[in-house]
Design a protein around this nucleic acid. Sequence first.
DNA 1: GATGAATGAGAGTTCATTCAT
DNA 2: TATGAATGAACTCTCATTCAT
Lengths: 237, 237, 237, 237
Amino acid sequence: MTKNDWEQWVQYIAEQYDLDLNKKQTAKQKQILEAAIHIFSEKGYSGATTSEIAKKAQVAEATIFKHYHSKKGLLLRLVLPAISKVVAPFVLKPLFAILEEEKPAEKIVEDLIKDRVELIEKNQKLIRVILVESLYHPELKEALVNHVLKANAPEVAKRVQRLKEQGIIRADLPDYVVISGLISTVLAYLISTNLFAFMGTESDEQKIKYFADLFINGIVPRSTDLRPAEREERRES
Amino acid sequence: MTKNDWEQWVQYIAEQYDLDLNKKQTAKQKQILEAAIHIFSEKGYSGATTSEIAKKAQVAEATIFKHYHSKKGLLLRLVLPAISKVVAPFVLKPLFAILEEEKPAEKIVEDLIKDRVELIEKNQKLIRVILVESLYHPELKEALVNHVLKANAPEVAKRVQRLKEQGIIRADLPDYVVISGLISTVLAYLISTNLFAFMGTESDEQKIKYFADLFINGIVPRSTDLRPAEREERRES
Amino acid sequence: MTKNDWEQWVQYIAEQYDLDLNKKQTAKQKQILEAAIHIFSEKGYSGATTSEIAKKAQVAEATIFKHYHSKKGLLLRLVLPAISKVVAPFVLKPLFAILEEEKPAEKIVEDLIKDRVELIEKNQKLIRVILVESLYHPELKEALVNHVLKANAPEVAKRVQRLKEQGIIRADLPDYVVISGLISTVLAYLISTNLFAFMGTESDEQKIKYFADLFINGIVPRSTDLRPAEREERRES
Amino acid sequence: MTKNDWEQWVQYIAEQYDLDLNKKQTAKQKQILEAAIHIFSEKGYSGATTSEIAKKAQVAEATIFKHYHSKKGLLLRLVLPAISKVVAPFVLKPLFAILEEEKPAEKIVEDLIKDRVELIEKNQKLIRVILVESLYHPELKEALVNHVLKANAPEVAKRVQRLKEQGIIRADLPDYVVISGLISTVLAYLISTNLFAFMGTESDEQKIKYFADLFINGIVPRSTDLRPAEREERRES
DNA sequence: GATGAATGAGAGTTCATTCAT
DNA sequence: TATGAATGAACTCTCATTCAT
């Protein structure tokens, strides 16, 4: 089973770094982890120093090493559970839930974007660390690609299939195009709020609606007789 | 003027790091720059060491410092001209050219994606370095946001306006949504080829067509009486 | 008196390290001492770590410090009683006993070697620790030279005198030559079994006889009329 | 061939520690090596610190690591050439030379002891380091036992054979007993001068004579008609 | 009596940088 | 111009030791 695969793999990596991912974290350890997220996301793993993390966490440097054995151990102790707990179940379950619901395409996509954006914004620092560091640490890249993406893609593809069959989305695009398109729509929103903040002044709510609309209806004008409401009717008939 | 703004700013930064961005690079210097791109992109700026770069470039470590004065100087000597020369003219000019041409939306978007993808693939390492390091070096982030994006956005927006007026693209979406959407369509393609490589087996050419199609027409089914060909007619009328 | 000297000195050192050398050792403490002997002998005092000793002894690191107060305290708690109990009485008494007995030189020397070799082999690790660490810890060196050697030398010298007077050993060699020669004969045996193991295949018993013979009769051939048996007669006449 | 064996082995170890044993040492490097010998012999390898060595050598700590890469590299850079150059040729050649000469046993043994003692005293610190550290570093132990002892033992044994055939030494003792005995005679001298210094007041010259005499003639009295001079005659007849 | 958690001090090692040649 | 040698500062990590429980 997929889940066991992932768990075994995490276990294996954790053992290599002598980490116990299940052990309850004491108050001080939580301070360390928080400080580490903060500083890793600000300076990158290599740019961060354990002494800085220790200072921010208000513990002695040695305490970090007592608990996590090495700087890399600390990184993994941050990132692996985040991938496990955040990316895997917490991430995918709501996604599936949303895809399951019976509602118009617009609403589905809007909900998806909103949901993902919230998730990203709540875990911004961690996600930045995971994405950037997976460029430099092959184990992390493997974790993401093989154990998260590959493992969950079939399940997602299944939902996409259903939507296609229901006529909610186009059947002539391959699954991966749909999925990549959805992901990139989330990215589009993030790009617009981060890089083009100087251009748009609408509420975030409204922005999300725009990007959902773009993803749903495309960039070219539609004939007026096919506004969303009508499609809705069509689908139901 | 925009361009002068940028150039002055680059000049200012270059001076701070005692760099002459115009001086012709000798063979050895080119070896150093190439080695640096390679290693910076593989390990990140902080994770790279000058000694490793020197070894790869087959020069003495001191040689690097003779030419670029500091590690950061080396980074900037790589990154600033890249932004100047690659991002600014080479990047934007073909983009403008494509947007200028009189051809159907599909073709325009396809050409845009193809053009950008080529650009990205040819300069992969450099782009990775620029993007990642701009997270950690405020000057770089400023360079990108203020001096590249902000400076060029109006020009791009102007073309978008024209396309809207011509009825080629929808007029009801704000410019920044269109632009972000376009960028993210390029990203969608890159995501699909890099992360979901295991799913799609089509040719790259075909993949690009799919993403262009998605961007153009959206994810929901269109009524059959509005297939691209027809829209084409409509627009012409 | 000699013995008191030594005891006072040990007492003084023990106090400095806050050790009670007489207190009965609990099971855990014995585990610690055994683990310490093992690891000190394998890695040397400086190379050993308290955490390693604790792990091998299956106690918490803090427990070691509860009992012995410091790493050096642990070393001394091992080494001082060993010198006291092993080196001093247990070592010298049988030696004196052997020297006291009325038997031919061969037998005396053989018995001496056998006795010492057994002692060394049984206490190998401890002896290694004592010898090596006395190179680096002046108190230990002092203990050995002043309180063991100097203190017991006169007594040994007295026995040597007697043997000389009895004509059992040559009278023309100074006492210290005889004593050093005897010690080095034991060493010769140890060297041969440890370093030249690949050369000799005889039984240990036989090897000891050879070294005793060498020590007794020397390396050059004796005239046949003076084989051991005859000397025996001579001496008795 | 023996010699190549050793050289290959040294080469292999040196490579593992990234050492170039042939490179000429600069003045600073010689200072470092000398300081290292001194401090390693005083405190043992583990007890010595690189910072202390650097201070004594009057160089920056980093300089040590530039040249020897690690503390262990420094140890090996000291010890391997010492074994190669000192132990192997310089040690064995004079030994062979002495064994080759045509002179009475007494003179041979005296010369051997004198020669070895000089060698040991001149290289005291280095020898102490080699012997003690070979207890803790398996590579060093292997170097000594397999590559020095085993490799040279046959050659030494050959000379011993010759001496036996010439009637200079007893034929009834195995070679390894003779060799171990000879080594331990040197040790006997060293023990007497180091540990029993308080007993003997003779000149070193005289002490050596005593130990040579003990080794040659043994500890029991000889019949007067077999004093050395006579044996000499005997042998010649 | 025993221990888990914590730590100050310092160890070995790396790194960007300088300088004489 | 190019470099080998050298280094101060900082970094990761270890160690003996303490203390609250």
